[in-house]
Design a binder for these strands. Structure first.
Length: 188
DNA sequence: AGCACGATGCTCT
DNA sequence: GAGCATCGTGCTT
């Protein structure tokens, strides 16, 4: 059986949450249909000191959700056209989140294929497009089903199948933050 | 298979 | 006004 990941799952060190979200199932109810996929890539963004994290600028209108309770969705817009989905982590008041970067589609394959024009879902903006996720879902509670977006337990992924490396896309971020091994990938 | 580039608009300085 | 937690195309090898 599958169960919803509870708030306490997210109220832990962000690296731990990022690792354990690999293999979990991301579920989206769209137009009455259930779309779902196994999370296969994540990245951790941890606090104001992390110069790769949006919270480096402190609490602003955009980053406010990261300062809120764990288990909520931080959805932001970038590059003029892309939405990114994160799960807020750690205790309320500490800004941190896990970026969900890729899924392997499992349910609602025809809808996903159609929304993506037949292309892949292995990128943070690709999966939000595939599942119809945008700014309207910013701040919603991922530990409940009310908003139509949540995360369930999925399949266990052994450590040997998880590749750990540096986060990507942080081209102007200085070390040591740029090289922190806070990216987790499941390579089948 | 890999790299360069343009798209496109919000956020924070 | 600069920069962006990216993507798809088109060109080169």
């Amino acid at each position: 059986m599958t169960i919803l990941l509870p708030i306490e799952f997210y109220n832990r060190p962000t690296q731990t949450v990022a690792r354990e979200l690999i293999g979990a199932r991301l579920v989206r109810m769209l137009d009455g249909q259930r779309l779902a996929g196994i999370i296969s890539e994540t990245e951790a963004y941890i606090g104001e000191a992390d110069l790769g994290c949006h919270a480096k600028a402190g609490k602003t209108k955009r980053t406010a959700v990261m300062y809120g309770p764990p288990g909520h969705a931080y959805v932001y817009f970038t590059y003029g056209m892309h939405w990114m989905l994160n799960a807020v982590t750690e205790t309320e008041g500490f800004p941190a989140a896990v970026l969900i970067r890729a899924i392997q589609p499992e349910e609602g394959l025809e809808v996903i294929r159609s929304r993506r024009g037949g292309r892949a879902t292995d990128g943070p903006a690709k999966l939000t497009q595939a599942l119809g996720i945008d700014g309207r879902l910013n701040g919603i509670d991922l530990s409940g089903t009310a908003a139509g977006l949540w995360i369930e337990t999925g399949i266990p992924i052994p450590d040997q199948a998880v590749t750990i490396g540096a986060r990507v896309g942080l081209n102007t971020v200085p070390e040591p933050w740029k090289g922190k091994p806070w990216r987790f990938r499941y390579l089948p």
